[in-house]
Design a protein around this nucleic acid. Structure first.
Lengths: 188, 188
DNA sequence: CAGATCATGTAATTTGTTACATGATTGT
DNA sequence: ACAATCATGTAACAAATTACATGATCTG
């Protein structure tokens, strides 16, 4: 079994809830984990084949007369065990990449206005993300009483909220700092 | 020129400050941008060759009698222009990956204690990151009066601080939530 | 004298992205 | 009629990680 292919476990996790087609998995991902674990069809379909070869999922073809054929995948007992085993392993160092910080780090090569504009765009993007999180949260509050799954879903949304808020706060402070600096430079 | 190889620009950016060897570039990265843009030797050396072929940097060999030979790279005017051009392009959608959220999203498959432990480990890791940021900040406060570069450096540290704090706050709330849930489940 | 640091690289593998390819059905 | 959605995939490419390979010098 691959050591690092975590998207495999994202797919397996989705199948631990219900039987799904590759297309359905994509939709589930887009509607839930995409903010911290996105995946395209180019990853989903090949990974499903790997999972099947490893005996972690089984497939069943539903021949549609009007609609296209659907290949429905179901998790096996072995798959469920493998998933739990992975969930139990400690989370490694997680390294992120912030293109905006990379660009800003070398920001002295550009006029300050350009950097300010960049930060303001970043702020705006994060404002829309925050709205999305708050939308998710509202939808969730009803379903929350039903199952434990939803509690964990809520936790992921909560981190999203915190992060996007942190981004926005930073953007505000950063813009102020750069504007001050600009004012000082103009005076001289 | 490659469309997406942003590490190329990280290297070029480091060379915009001073002439460096591949080995030096690695050190510079480790001491500054590694929290948001890490790179290993396996990326640095091949990318330097690409930059040279494109005429964005020049190389000069320093034959050491006692030490190993050093290949010193310097940015060209064309390289500086290319860097500025890239810095001016807007920052695209940046997608992050949080392994801890992926694991937590499917957390209902594990006993709550395990999820709590995971979150507490995450909190601790982020506490050390925050300390590092604060150390960086202290070092910086002296140099800050000299050059504009340092102001942009400060901005990147500020975002780091915000994010690690957000992570820690979230961890505290998340643990509380899970412990409450646990208490409720035990009562029934 | 052992381990860290200086110094350069290549090769293999894995992972992820993007483009291509096909075609029916459903909604506006 | 046109766009969006349903549905499956492959192939090419790009990027990043990891392991391998070498060897001197400096520090404790």
């Amino acid at each position: 079994m691959a050591k690092e292919n975590k998207t495999l476990y994202a797919i397996l996790g989705m199948l631990s809830h219900e039987e799904l087609t590759g297309y359905d998995i994509k939709k589930r991902i887009d509607n839930s984990i995409r903010f911290f674990w996105d995946a395209g069809f180019g990853q989903i379909y090949p990974n499903l084949k790997i999972l099947e070869k490893e005996g972690l999922v089984t497939k069943r073809v539903e021949t549609g007369e009007t609609r296209p054929n659907r290949i429905i995948y179901a998790i096996t007992e072995k798959g469920r065990e493998e998933l739990k085993k992975w969930l139990a392993t400690p989370v490694g160092e997680q390294h992120v990449r912030y293109e905006i910080l990379l660009k800003l780090f070398f920001g002295s090569l550009l006029p300050a206005e350009e950097n300010i504009k960049k930060i303001e765009e970043f702020r705006e993007t994060n404002r829309t993300y925050l709205e999305t999180m708050q939308g998710f949260k509202t939808c969730l509050s009803e379903a929350l009483k039903e199952s434990d799954d939803h509690l964990y879903y809520l936790l992921t949304i909560m981190l999203g909220e915190k992060i996007y808020k942190a981004h926005m706060e930073w953007a505000d402070e950063a813009v102020k700092l750069l504007q001050n600096e600009q004012a000082v430079n103009i005076k001289h």
